[in-house]
């Protein structure tokens, strides 16, 4: 959301506030007349005098009242807009990163040094054969997530793998994105808002 792309986002509330101010100025004498009528039923002379004065001489306080209402309304609107923009920027950044900080780690291949194919992704005959024999063990090694907890200020960390995938459902292949994570670390590390799903992340 960029209010400068669409000036109406700023202009419409400001014009609305101005229109409401003029409307209030129109009906204020009537309201004051009602107040003075109600005050006449009581023994409050001060209130009655003030209400009658305001009901009869509305032109005397129009300018300062407009300034007062506009100043207060526009400051509330600006503060509200600033808070909305702050929250939008926070949510947008966290949504893009998934958490406060996103790191890309390079793993260490377990393939024998000097062999070709595994690091570059060239699918030669020998690399396919080697891959099939190595399926039993890990092909890449990464630092344990606990290493990140040793960094000062880090409260939690989670490892996430994001890759493209084909989902086979009802005899069709659907291109999708597969995100793999360890749920133990993920739920208290990832950015999550209640409107991401109909049920909470952790019940």
């Amino acid at each position: 959301m960029d209010p400068f792309q669409n000036p109406l986002l700023l202009l419409v509330p400001a014009l609305g506030i101005f229109a409401l101010t003029l409307l209030i100025l129109r009906i204020l004498p009537t309201i004051m007349a009602l107040v003075s009528w109600a005050a006449s039923m009581t023994n409050s002379v001060g209130l009655l005098m003030a209400a009658r004065y305001l009901a009869r001489t509305s032109g005397g306080y129009t300018a300062p009242l407009i300034l007062l209402i506009l100043t207060l309304s526009l400051s509330i609107f600006t503060a509200s807009l600033a808070q909305t923009l702050d929250r939008h920027t926070h949510d947008q950044t966290h949504y893009r990163n998934g958490a406060d900080i996103s790191l890309v780690e390079m793993g260490e291949s377990t393939a024998p040094t000097g062999s070709s194919g595994s690091m570059t992704g060239i699918a030669g005959t020998d690399s396919i054969a080697r891959s099939s024999t190595e399926l039993a063990g890990p092909k890449w090694r990464f630092l344990p997530v606990s290493e990140h907890h040793k960094v000062p200020g880090v409260q939690s960390a989670a490892r996430v793998k994001r890759t493209t995938a084909d989902v086979m459902t009802n005899g069709r292949n659907i291109a999708s994105t597969l995100i793999g994570f360890d749920w133990v670390d993920f739920w208290h590390t990832a950015f999550w808002r209640r409107d991401f799903a109909s049920s909470p992340l952790v019940g």
């Binding site: 890759t163 995938a165 084909d166 086979m168």
Partner: peptide
């Protein structure tokens, strides 16, 4: 749900 992933080389 069956999911196929193409990663690194296979």
């Amino acid at each position: 749900l069956r999911v196929s992933v193409y990663d690194t080389e296979e």
